[in-house]
Simulated assay, not measured.
Amino acid sequence: MKRQIKSNKNWSHKHDYPEEEIWQTGHLIAQLIATRLRAFRSYDKHGYSGNFSSMEKWNKALDKMIYAFELYAHGTIAPEEQEAFQEGLDLFHDNFLYLWD
C-alpha cells in the first residue's frame, strides 16, 4: 500500500532555519552524521555489519566513515584526501542499514 504524505502547498519553509544553514546544508548534515557516528563508535555494540568478519574491522570502517564526514564538514577536500573521502562515503552507503545496535 502506498503511503500518503500530507502537504500544505501554501506553507513555506523558507524561514524555518537560518540562511547560513540552508546554504551549507551538506556541511551541516555531515557534522550531524560525524557526531552521531562518533557516538555510535564509542558504544559497546552487540553486533556488527555482515559485511565485516569482526567487531575490530567494523570499528575501523566506522572510523573511515567518521573521517570522511569530518573532512566534508570542515570545508573543501584536498586532492590527496579524495580517495579516503570516497571510501568513507562508500562504506556509509553500503552499511547504512547496519547503523543500529
Results as ranks from 00 to 15, higher is better:
residue 16 D to H: 06
residue 34 A to F: 02
residue 29 I to D: 02
residue 93 H to R: 11
residue 65 M to P: 10
residue 64 K to D: 09
residue 73 A to Y: 01
residue 41 R to N: 09
residue 29 I to P: 00
residue 4 Q to E: 14
residue 61 A to G: 00
residue 17 Y to P: 00
residue 38 R to D: 14
residue 98 Y to V: 04
residue 63 D to P: 07
residue 26 G to P: 02
residue 94 D to Q: 12
residue 63 D to H: 05
residue 21 E to R: 05
residue 95 N to D: 13
residue 72 Y to M: 11
residue 22 I to K: 07
residue 88 G to A: 03
residue 61 A to E: 01
residue 24 Q to D: 13
residue 7 S to V: 15
residue 78 A to W: 07
residue 66 I to T: 07
residue 4 Q to R: 11
residue 38 R to Q: 15
residue 75 G to T: 08
residue 32 L to P: 00
residue 52 F to R: 03
residue 85 F to D: 05
residue 51 N to Q: 14
residue 97 L to D: 08
residue 86 Q to F: 09
residue 25 T to G: 01
residue 65 M to V: 11
residue 46 H to V: 11
residue 24 Q to R: 12
residue 73 A to P: 01
residue 6 K to I: 15
residue 41 R to E: 08
residue 27 H to F: 14
residue 68 A to W: 02
residue 65 M to W: 09
residue 69 F to P: 00
residue 82 Q to K: 15
residue 15 H to P: 00
residue 8 N to F: 14
residue 5 I to V: 15
residue 37 L to N: 06
residue 79 P to L: 10
residue 5 I to L: 15
residue 22 I to L: 08
residue 20 E to S: 08
residue 24 Q to W: 08
residue 31 Q to V: 07
residue 77 I to T: 14
residue 2 K to N: 14
residue 100 W to G: 04
residue 77 I to H: 04
residue 70 E to S: 06
residue 65 M to C: 14
residue 6 K to R: 14
residue 46 H to P: 09
residue 17 Y to R: 13
residue 39 A to S: 09
residue 66 I to K: 04
residue 65 M to E: 12
residue 93 H to M: 05
residue 26 G to Y: 03
residue 88 G to D: 02
residue 25 T to E: 10
residue 68 A to R: 04
residue 58 W to R: 04
residue 25 T to F: 11
residue 92 F to H: 06
residue 28 L to N: 09
residue 92 F to M: 12
residue 84 A to F: 06
residue 27 H to W: 13
residue 25 T to Q: 10
residue 93 H to T: 12
residue 91 L to N: 05
residue 49 S to H: 04
residue 6 K to S: 14
residue 64 K to P: 02
residue 75 G to R: 03
residue 90 D to S: 13
residue 49 S to F: 06
residue 73 A to M: 01
residue 7 S to L: 14
residue 54 S to T: 10
residue 56 E to Y: 04
residue 54 S to R: 02
residue 29 I to C: 02
residue 17 Y to K: 08
residue 46 H to I: 10
residue 89 L to R: 11
residue 100 W to M: 06
residue 16 D to N: 07
residue 33 I to W: 04
residue 54 S to N: 04
residue 19 E to F: 10
residue 12 S to K: 11
residue 58 W to F: 15
residue 35 T to N: 08
residue 96 F to M: 12
residue 69 F to A: 00
